[in-house]
Design a protein around this nucleic acid. Structure first.
Lengths: 337, 337
DNA sequence: TTGTAAGCGTTATCAG
DNA sequence: CTGATAACGCTTACAA
């Protein structure tokens, strides 16, 4: 049905072994021979059979991207970054969503789908307590992680604690003293980034001895709707905050909408700051701490590649690569009235 | 290094053939035998080697999603929809971006990466004149397409012509007579959807004998920035439109920003309507024609699966599945002043 | 219902 | 530098 390496070999008058070596660019092949083989191969429109190659070599030439969401902005940007790196390297990228439910079907544990199937794993923001994480890590294959930390794997992230501090201090310097935080959810189910941001926020609050009212923390589940409801809740309380630190821009968008619904103007009546620099943020006038999301994916992809290619990846204890962030001031924050 | 089918076979006291049949749920295996094999296999923590299975069977158990963008909203939603279907079916999903440039590297033609590697192809919105399209289609493997039409492949889309008509008529009924269109780019490089929307728009304009000024069409490249620049251009002209039909919500966002920058209020000074119902649209007060994007991916995935499984896929001429759209009126459109 | 054995198309070892 | 040839782990007629 298809052209095989044998056809190329006989057409070029060499052995299959030589064809294999020539086509893969291995040394110990005379240049003339290599050229001839290449020409014959492309003349025959030969494409190697990945299955056969994988079976014989033990390498699959592919990696898996494990992610709890595909279409949310942060995740799709990260995936795009990783894909570009893998494409350049000639590695296939398998997409695996481990979100809790798909179409109402229960989630399918990823580990069995990973074994013998990929050479490397890129984990995007799985919370440390996610039940799938441990089994994946104990597969002991080349692994990189974005927005998290795990022993022995390359991790890429921003300095979430510092980013949260930057955001919170921005509000403080504007004169705000009653600052609320819009986080994702309860501490038992948090992404690493989320926990760090919480710590950053708390540290600034503590340093300046600001109000530490438990009523000043609400959950927004990292969605716009969640952010809106969270802000609604804050505004419904006896003593609302004058400023809010939202752990993501999307939640901040929701908060802004809530403010407007209540006849309040962001930046004047209540200040809102986010983290991300989402493409819509400039449109919403949202002050935020930017993070280089695509680059997160690119960097993690590169590190994963290195692990896969490197002789015996000399992974020192915890490898953490931090990418820079930047405060971007817009109109959603302003001095306390 | 790993447990193979032989280990399972000898441990269960049967032949490898029986193990293979038992584990794959083929008929002609005594239930008792099947149970025993299954137990032994899971006891041994056996996972099949996909490479070997693929080589022997000729089936790869995977499909490729070919897309010009990964992180743009529409595309990531479609991918997410397709992924959920494939995950349920136990099919691997390979992600392949064919965007023009990656990291400044030239694009890598997808066809060689497809041959012998996947059992099916899902094409997301490749323009009919894309140089990669023809070679992909002539691979003659199970193929489904979103937002496009091609002979012999299952296509899923909305009725773009009707959607554009709905949008344009909405503006007409509000009293607008000088209506501009914010399209993607010149007609030589258009997505199918784009061409259809143009036709829909033109048909309404013609029916009501409205102004057909070539100065009333601008390109926005389906991005927010593009939409903004397009609107800027429109406003800079001698006789600006009183309403604009944007072919996507994201371009509409840009147009709204442009209006605001010019001190104009959308829906009062100039009306803007989009197509999509992007999650941010309600935040922007954007009137739009919604389309079920995730469902596009799901439906296309299902059709592709059917082709892959079906005996000899009885693909009648052109199969086109159209999903419904709906006009959603918000504040960005209003009666002509 | 189950077993035997011939592939599937490469890679890699070992000679030459 | 090149050629035989034995794996690689599974599927699938074909037999039994």
């Amino acid at each position: 049905m298809g052209i095989t390496i044998k056809d190329v070999a006989s057409a070029a008058g060499v052995s299959t072994a030589t064809v294999s070596r020539a086509l893969r660019g291995l040394p110990n092949v005379e240049e003339a021979t290599r050229e001839r083989v290449k020409e014959v191969a492309s003349g025959l429109d030969y494409v190697i059979s990945p299955s056969a190659s994988r079976l014989a070599s033990g390498r699959t030439g592919s990696i898996a991207v494990i992610t709890p969401y595909i279409s949310r902005w942060f995740f799709s940007e990260v995936i795009a970054g990783a894909e570009s790196v893998m494409q350049q390297a000639g590695i296939d990228l398998l997409l695996m969503n481990v979100g809790n439910y798909q179409n109402g079907h229960a989630r399918i544990p990823p580990t069995p789908r990973l074994r013998r199937r990929v050479d490397g794993i890129l984990i995007v923001s799985l919370p440390p307590q996610d039940p799938d994480l441990e089994p994946i890590l104990s597969l002991e294959m080349p692994t990189a992680m974005i927005g998290g930390v795990a022993p022995g794997v390359d991790c890429v992230a921003i300095d979430d604690l510092a980013a949260a501090r930057t955001a919170t201090e921005h509000l403080y310097f504007l004169g705000h003293r009653r600052i609320a935080v819009l986080s994702g959810g309860p501490s038992e189910a948090r992404f690493t980034a989320e926990s760090q941001r919480e710590r950053g926020f708390r540290s600034v609050i503590a340093e300046h001895s600001l109000v530490e009212d438990p009523m000043l923390e609400v959950f927004g589940h990292f969605t716009m709707e969640g952010g809106e409801h969270g802000m609604d809740a804050l505004l419904g309380r006896p003593n609302p905050p004058t400023a809010v630190f939202a752990m993501s821009d999307e939640m901040a968008f929701g908060a802004i909408r809530s403010l407007r619904n209540h006849g309040l103007e962001p930046g004047r009546d209540v200040s809102i700051i986010g983290i991300d620099n989402h493409p819509m943020s400039s449109y919403m006038g949202l002050t935020t701490v930017s993070q280089p999301v695509t680059e997160l994916g690119v960097k993690a992809g590169e590190l994963l590649l290195r692990q896969m290619q490197g002789p015996i990846a000399p992974i020192s204890a915890d490898r953490l690569t931090e990418l820079p962030t930047e405060l971007i001031v817009r109109t959603s924050t302003g001095p306390k009235a």
